[in-house]
Amino acid sequence: MAHQVRAVVAREKNAPVTLDTIVVPDPGPGEALVKVEACGVCHTDLHYRDGGINDDFPFLLGHEAAGRVEAVGAGVTDVAPGDFVILNWRAVCGQCRACRRGRPWYCFATHNAAQRMTLLDGTPLAPALGIGAFAEKTLVAAGQCTKVDPAASAAAAGLLGCGVMAGFGAAVNTAGVGRGDSVAVIGCGGVGAAAIAGARIAGATTIVAVDVDERKLQRAAGMGATHTVDASTADVVEAVRELTGGYGADVVIDAVGRPETFRQAFYARDLAGIAVLVGVPTPEMRLELPLLDVFARGGAVKSSWYGDCLPSRDFPMLIDLYLQGRFDLDAFVSETIGLGDVEKAFEEMHHGEVLRSVVVL
């Protein structure tokens, strides 16, 4: 039996979102129906609304979500009705060349639910990142559900589904930050703040937060940054070098994703240091670097897609750290809102007023 539920839909490019009734099918083979408890408002949702991802309107927005499994389809064994889960972008296949090499976080054949959710008139919806969780219920591939300790707050846990995992993973998984390392993070929104928190937990001793917004720098200090740099007034490369003995940081993470910030990351690292790109560029952006500098400075230049995470491995571990009081996920929740407040949350995001607004159902 199909389910009619309330959901936030982007019907047209650059138009305000609408609160609609949508139709969610019962789960088919390999699928799960999830009753959403909370979903963070991410910049990616705004990019969908503004046509920055693709033109497959209408979109069912929302993807940083946690909730309870309500039903599963045939063949599903990893989760069951009643399980508290965090949703992830795409289920790994277990069969592609990346999976067979023991690197499922690079899976080249990830997948989502086969059935489509629709508007009442039958118009198919494109769920944001294959999830679509600004809704009372959503349909996903069962592999998109990761079971975690139900003692966790849904508002905090859901944020692991995207931005927090991307930032934390950029520091811990991609860069491999370790004890005694120096780290600089350029851009201190949700992803950058999570990278700072990850670097602190991994044992970095010098953590430099870089941003043009004093409010974000103050929040970064609360997440574990030992130093802050106002990029609107300081030379970022020189400031990071000065704070790291004149050498540059062992790891520099660009959580902005622009040519100028990645160039800063490249030159603000120590010789043989690591520069990590986790901020998402737009298609027209181009980067130019002297090839001799790439050779002479050594080290590594890496991109971090979704924090190189494996949800089945990383989500439960991070929830355990949260419940132990070692990872303050609650600090990422600036406010809780209702389904009807998403458009207002987009405006607050534009003005840098929040780290994360979270829809609570």
Results as ranks from 00 to 15, higher is better:
residue 320 D to T: 09
residue 45 D to W: 06
residue 271 L to M: 15
residue 357 S to E: 09
residue 85 V to S: 02
residue 175 A to C: 03
residue 159 L to C: 07
residue 298 G to H: 09
residue 335 E to P: 09
residue 355 L to Y: 14
residue 111 H to V: 11
residue 86 I to E: 02
residue 49 R to V: 03
residue 129 L to N: 15
residue 312 S to K: 13
residue 132 G to Y: 01
residue 315 F to H: 07
residue 88 N to E: 06
residue 216 K to N: 12
residue 104 P to M: 02
residue 131 I to A: 01
residue 300 A to F: 07
residue 190 G to R: 04
residue 320 D to R: 15
residue 75 G to W: 01
residue 153 S to A: 05
residue 21 T to V: 11
residue 149 D to G: 00
residue 186 I to S: 05
residue 116 R to W: 01
residue 228 T to S: 05
residue 284 E to P: 01
residue 238 E to I: 02
residue 261 T to V: 13
residue 360 V to H: 14
residue 140 V to S: 08
residue 197 A to Q: 10
residue 182 S to R: 00
residue 79 V to C: 07
residue 90 R to G: 09
residue 216 K to C: 08
residue 252 V to A: 04
residue 20 D to G: 02
residue 159 L to G: 06
residue 141 A to V: 15
residue 182 S to E: 00
residue 47 H to Y: 10
residue 146 T to G: 04
residue 19 L to I: 13
residue 86 I to A: 03
residue 2 A to K: 12
residue 314 D to W: 09
residue 103 R to K: 04
residue 226 T to N: 09
residue 256 V to H: 11
residue 175 A to Y: 04
residue 69 V to K: 12
residue 19 L to A: 00
residue 359 V to S: 11
residue 42 C to G: 12
residue 188 C to G: 04
residue 280 V to G: 08
residue 193 A to M: 13
residue 139 L to E: 01
residue 354 V to N: 14
residue 62 G to S: 06
residue 52 G to W: 11
residue 63 H to I: 12
residue 7 A to Y: 00
residue 260 E to A: 15
residue 18 T to I: 06
residue 352 G to L: 15
residue 28 G to H: 06
residue 32 A to T: 13
residue 24 V to D: 00
residue 41 V to M: 07
residue 34 V to P: 06
residue 45 D to M: 07
residue 302 K to T: 06
residue 337 I to K: 14
residue 115 Q to M: 08
residue 285 M to A: 15
residue 155 A to I: 00
residue 96 C to R: 05
residue 271 L to N: 12
residue 65 A to R: 10
residue 170 A to C: 06
residue 36 V to K: 11
residue 251 V to A: 03
residue 239 A to E: 03
residue 141 A to K: 05
residue 100 R to P: 00
residue 79 V to T: 03
residue 190 G to K: 06
residue 173 N to V: 03
residue 339 L to D: 12
residue 114 A to H: 12
residue 183 V to S: 01
residue 128 A to E: 13
residue 169 G to K: 11
residue 69 V to D: 02
residue 26 D to W: 02
residue 240 V to S: 01
residue 296 A to W: 14
residue 129 L to D: 05
residue 93 C to K: 10
residue 273 G to K: 13
residue 65 A to K: 09
residue 46 L to W: 08
residue 118 T to D: 01
residue 189 G to K: 08
residue 292 L to A: 14
residue 356 R to S: 14
residue 257 G to K: 14
residue 266 F to C: 13
residue 243 L to S: 03
residue 281 P to G: 10
residue 50 D to N: 15
residue 81 P to G: 03
residue 93 C to L: 03
residue 183 V to Y: 02
residue 256 V to F: 11
residue 148 V to I: 05
residue 317 M to L: 11
residue 141 A to M: 14
residue 146 T to N: 05
residue 140 V to L: 12
residue 45 D to Y: 05
